[in-house]
Amino acid sequence: MSNHDNKSAEAPGIAGGKSPSAPLIETINLYKSYFNEDLETPVLFDINLKIESGEFVAIMGPSGSGKSTLMHILGFLDVTTKGHYHFKGESTEEKVQDDLARIRAENISFVFQSFNLLPRTTVYDNVLLPLLYGTTPVHERRKRTLKAIESVGLADRTMFFSNQLSGGQQQRVAIARALVTEPEVIFADEPTGNLDSASGKHVMEILQNLNKEGHTIILVTHERTTAEHANRIIHIQDGRILTDEKGHTKRIASQVKQLK
């Protein structure tokens, strides 16, 4: 019976197509390379990874290690060259551009290092943006947008323009924008990279709280202190997974340090 359910829920997007046993994210021998005029540059090799719903995972590695490429593939901004990527138990290799766009609209959110807010646009409109491309009913938009803004503590800045805010506040707007669609997973790509340490700490606290509330968070960073906020650290180097440790984060981070 569960088999039958799976099939009927395949389209559109992936929402609902979950089999109880399947992890949220599973890659099997994932391989990625870029081609530049017939010259193949491999970036990721044999990535085998399982991430369960509700995890807070840090993907760590030096620049050029392939961690951003991995995040782009897991976040449906890019596609694999070889291997498999199952999202909620469903194969994703056959998806076309617009299918990927639909998954991004409904299942995925991003927080970027450089915030990427729309300039000369209010906090409200910035946070509302993903709802315009999704399936949220029009009458629910306002409520959800305000709730997301409130959850990052910026209710009093709702009608401010994005460029009137500090960097930390801008990143919190970006987090609100990531929350508003109630996605399955939030990808944070060096979210503290452009922030001072106090703002960065605040942002990481928000992400930790979101994780405690049940959100799956995948953090990409090269900073050990940032990665330590996660419950699991996957260390990537030269396109391969070096370590994948769950448990007490401080301990993992120090192990990684020793490996270096």
């Binding site: 976040g75 617009d98 766009a101 991003f110 990427n116 993903p130 999704g134």
Partner: peptide, 16 residues
């Protein structure tokens, strides 16, 4: 370009 990238990242289709 960056705005277009962001719109695509939050789910805009090519048609949008």
């Amino acid at each position: 370009t960056k705005e277009i990238g962001l719109r695509k990242a939050v789910g805009a289709k090519r048609r949008d």
